[in-house]
Design a binder for these strands. Sequence first.
DNA 1: AACAGATACCTGCTCGAACAAGTAACTACC
DNA 2: GGTAGTTACTTGTTCGAGCAGGTATCTGTT
Lengths: 176, 176
Amino acid sequence: MTQSTPAVGKAPAGAGREASVPVPAAASGGPISHAIFRLARLHRMFAGQLLRRIGLHPGQELVMMQLWELGPQRQIDLVRLLDSDAATMTRTVQRLEQAGFVRRRPSPTDKRASLIEPTAASHALRREVEQSWSQLEDLVTAGLSTGERTEALSTLERLEQNLVQAAVDPTRATES
Amino acid sequence: MTQSTPAVGKAPAGAGREASVPVPAAASGGPISHAIFRLARLHRMFAGQLLRRIGLHPGQELVMMQLWELGPQRQIDLVRLLDSDAATMTRTVQRLEQAGFVRRRPSPTDKRASLIEPTAASHALRREVEQSWSQLEDLVTAGLSTGERTEALSTLERLEQNLVQAAVDPTRATES
DNA sequence: AACAGATACCTGCTCGAACAAGTAACTACC
DNA sequence: GGTAGTTACTTGTTCGAGCAGGTATCTGTT
């Protein structure tokens, strides 16, 4: 574990401190950026916790959800759906295959590609994964009214859109 | 790169798509959670971009900022300040040392510990790192009024607090 | 039909993150 | 002062993420 976290295996690493005077310098340089960073960190930790007991590693659940929902997909499709990376997908699929959650079948129309399909064993996980997602949602939105949730969502999306915009139109400072 | 992103090395991987119908299933299972996930992803990509041209890897800049601000620190101090992991810190410091941004000196009072201090070479980076942070802040908060920024910040912090709370007081669903 | 370019996938590498173990060195208590 | 427990750090492993190649295979054009 990280440090004083007592309940190992329960609370995500290092949660429960900071949130007060986390990183003075970094915070002053970009409070919102820093808040995103911390929120993301915690959020990832919790997601990791939840997934851990299901037997998946963070990221794998996203692949599985696509397969469960859309059926067999080529790796490149998964890459595009998840906005991931071909190399990462290769390895993630290999591990999922090795774990028995996924099977590969050569594409009938394209000798380069193979179709990735969820195994029967994987379907047992589906409910658990979905539960974990809503569990996480409950945790993160605890105490928020419906209106506040809508508001929070639109705030997050606005920030996201700013970044998407900056990526598409690098008229911005990202350039040197 | 990921997919159709044209300007390789400029726009972070895979930005510019999704944001419309990204991951139907995952989104419906936890819209805010999912929004956090996407925002964090993009945010990390941008931060990575910015850091890349400085010559640091994501995470290393946080260590350096602590050192610049507080002076020589033991690894355990850095771990606590950044809420990181001792093992990760060992390797991050090793890489920073190898890159010439950091030096190790045995602690005068504790033979187990060593003091990590920023090198002169590293100080040249400081301004760049700080610029990158405010650049990122500008990107992410583009078009937001001062009031909206305050609001966004408190929204992020509220979500963060929810997670912190859940970590400290696992009366919640995180437990099985 | 032949070629150039795009695709789909794979492999090797580095890095942070997290877990598990292990080794010194320090501290507290008897 | 000697031992039990803690602490600081290291190493090994797995995993996602990203970059840089490399190899088949397909496709569009001539």
